[in-house]
Simulated scan of single mutants.
Amino acid sequence: MFKQVLSSIVALALSLSIGSAFASVDVNTANSDALRGIKGIGPAKAKAILDERQAHGPFKDAADLGTRVKGMGGKTVQRLEAEGLTIGAAPKTAAASLASPGSGAAVSATQVSTSSTAKPVVVKK
């Protein structure tokens, strides 16, 4: 009985770790390697996204991405979103929003710099 409970716990932990391994990639902050980690984005499409983002600023939403990057229509963008591509960065100080101003709780947020040489972790199913 103990072995059965233990194997159930191990199976649950494994399934939760696999689910959390799926990470989203924000089109407005990702580098070329991170974009290429999304199934359906190769080197040429990653370059086109980065060139357009640098020339005209961040993408507002999925429709904006589909309009501004050649070859990326609505269905393509939807498919890429299903693969983990997101449009729009998370708030820079998400930790600061956890404490209300009058609560007396002190929360500090540290800016984390991103490196263009860092390699993203890619999990293939």
Score class of each variant (00 low, 15 high):
Leu6Asn: 04
Ala44His: 00
Ala63Cys: 01
Arg53Tyr: 11
Ile49Cys: 00
Asp51Pro: 12
Val123Lys: 11
Thr114Val: 11
Ala30Asn: 02
Ser20Ile: 12
Phe22Thr: 03
Pro120Tyr: 13
Ile41Phe: 02
Ser32Gln: 14
Gly88Phe: 07
Pro43Ile: 08
Lys45Phe: 13
Val121Glu: 12
Val25Glu: 05
Lys70Val: 10
Gly40Pro: 03
Asn31Ala: 05
Asn31Arg: 04
Ile9Gln: 09
Val77Leu: 04
Lys124Gly: 08
Lys70Phe: 06
Asp51Ile: 11
Leu12Tyr: 10
Gln111His: 14
Lys47Phe: 11
Ser116Ala: 14
Ile38Gln: 02
Pro58Phe: 06
Asp51Gly: 11
Thr86Asp: 11
Ala109Glu: 14
Arg68Phe: 11
Ser7Thr: 15
Ser97Arg: 11
Ala94Thr: 05
Lys3Met: 14
Gly40Arg: 01
Ile9Lys: 04
Gly71Leu: 12
Asn28Ser: 05
Asp26Ser: 14
Phe59Arg: 00
Gln54Ile: 10
Ala94Glu: 02
Val77Thr: 02
Ser116Val: 13
Ser108Phe: 08
Ala63Gln: 05
Val107Pro: 12
Arg68Ser: 10
Val122Thr: 15
Ser20Thr: 09
Lys47Cys: 06
Gly42Thr: 06
Lys39His: 05
Val112Thr: 12
Ser103Thr: 13
Pro101His: 07
Ala105Gln: 12
Lys47His: 11
Ala99His: 08
Ser116Leu: 13
Phe22Glu: 04
Lys119Pro: 08
Thr93Cys: 10
Gly42Cys: 07
Thr29Gly: 10
Ile38Phe: 06
Ala89Tyr: 00
Ser20Glu: 05
Gln54Val: 12
Gly37Thr: 01
Ser32Trp: 01
Asn31Ser: 10
Ile38His: 01
Ala89Arg: 01
Ala30Gly: 04
Thr110Glu: 15
Lys60Phe: 07
Arg68Thr: 12
Leu35Cys: 04
Asp64Met: 04
Gly88Pro: 09
Gly42Phe: 07
Gln111Ser: 14
Ser24Met: 09
Gln111Cys: 04
Ala106His: 12
Ala105Asn: 10
Ser7Phe: 13
Asp26Ala: 08
Ser103Arg: 06
Gly19Ala: 14
Gly40Cys: 03
Ala89Leu: 02
Gln54Pro: 01
Thr110Met: 09
Gly71Thr: 13
Asn28Phe: 06
Lys92Phe: 07
Arg36Gln: 15
Ser115Pro: 10
Arg79Asp: 15
Ser97Asn: 10
Ser15Arg: 08
Ala30Tyr: 02
Ala23Met: 12
Gln78Ala: 15
Leu80His: 03
Arg68Asp: 08
Thr93Trp: 03
Ser32Val: 04
